[in-house]
């Protein structure tokens, strides 16, 4: 069991992160060069402002704000919450003054971030059970959503355990040892996790496993929309 735990937390994390970073870089290079070629060949009336227009349109989902206001609200909420989630993980790596402008406990959001994400992801998943989205969906649409739900669920539970029922065996310091070790290439699995005595350490392992799989599947899934949306909107404006 210790070997499995070690494999998931260290080598697999490095491998999946490497896949994610290389594929993301490849996609970015591909998008930049592709955008240049496409812009040279684009035809039709221009729409201004080109860059800022595409940025605002993409980030605020302006295309569906009038026609699907409920989905628009949930999408906006989901993406904003995702940004908070990233900030929260940065704070788990090490102390950040700028993120503590508004003083708060770690993890950021007092449990609400995970809750909001879960509500959103569940909505996105259950929406797929209804026609015609059900027939349109491909297997990858489901497994990415399920992996994200499992990641958020296990992550939220780790956070809520401390605030809701005073769980304190695994502290923020333990997470920091683990995450800062990974980022400085001196990986350490804290004893409290490795020993399996911590109870909730299994949640950390599920959390990391699912997150690793999301990272690894990123390049072959439609999650590439994260880096395509702004360039595509820009292309439509020429």
């Amino acid at each position: 069991m210790a070997a499995v735990v070690y494999f998931v937390l260290i080598p697999m994390t490095y491998a999946c992160t490497a896949i994610f970073i290389f594929s993301l870089s490849w996609h970015i290079v591909r998008v930049v060069s592709g955008l240049r070629i496409s812009l040279a060949g684009s035809v039709g009336p221009e729409k201004r402002p080109k860059f800022w227009g595409s940025l605002v349109e993409s980030l605020l989902f302006l295309k569906i704000i009038k026609t699907h206001p409920v989905q628009w609200f949930l999408l906006i909420l989901f993406h904003i919450t995702f940004l908070f989630l990233i900030a929260g993980h940065i704070e788990l790596i090490g102390h950040s003054e700028c993120l503590q402008i508004v003083p708060h406990e770690i993890f950021l959001g007092a449990g609400f971030i995970g809750l909001v994400l879960l509500v959103n992801l569940s909505f996105f998943l259950f929406r797929r059970f209804h026609s015609p989205i059900r027939e349109m969906s491909e297997p990858s649409d489901y497994y990415i959503l399920i992996l994200l739900i499992l990641t958020v669920l296990s992550g939220s539970q780790m956070n809520l355990a401390r605030s809701l029922y005073g769980y304190s065996t695994m502290s923020v310091a333990d997470y920091r040892i683990f995450l800062s070790g990974l980022t400085t290439f001196h990986p350490v699995v804290p004893d409290v996790i490795q020993s399996g005595d911590a109870g909730h350490s299994i949640l950390l392992i599920i959390h990391v496993l699912c997150a690793n799989l999301v990272f690894a599947l990123f390049p072959s899934s439609n999650l590439v929309h994260t880096i395509l949306t702004v360039p595509l909107s820009r292309l439509q404006r020429h």
């Binding site: 591909r30 998008v31 592709g34 955008l35 070629i37 496409s38 060949g41 295309k63 569906i64 026609t67 699907h68 989905q71 015609p132 989205i133 349109m136 969906s137 491909e138 649409d141 439609n222 590439v224 929309h225 395509l228 949306t229 360039p231 595509l232 292309l235």
Partner: peptide, 20 residues
């Protein structure tokens, strides 16, 4: 070669296009 058709792979199958 361009960005063009590559974007087809980014379709989220959200179905928002249906009622347009």
């Amino acid at each position: 070669q361009g960005l063009g058709i590559m974007h087809a792979t980014a379709c989220m199958h959200c179905g928002f296009c249906a009622d347009t």
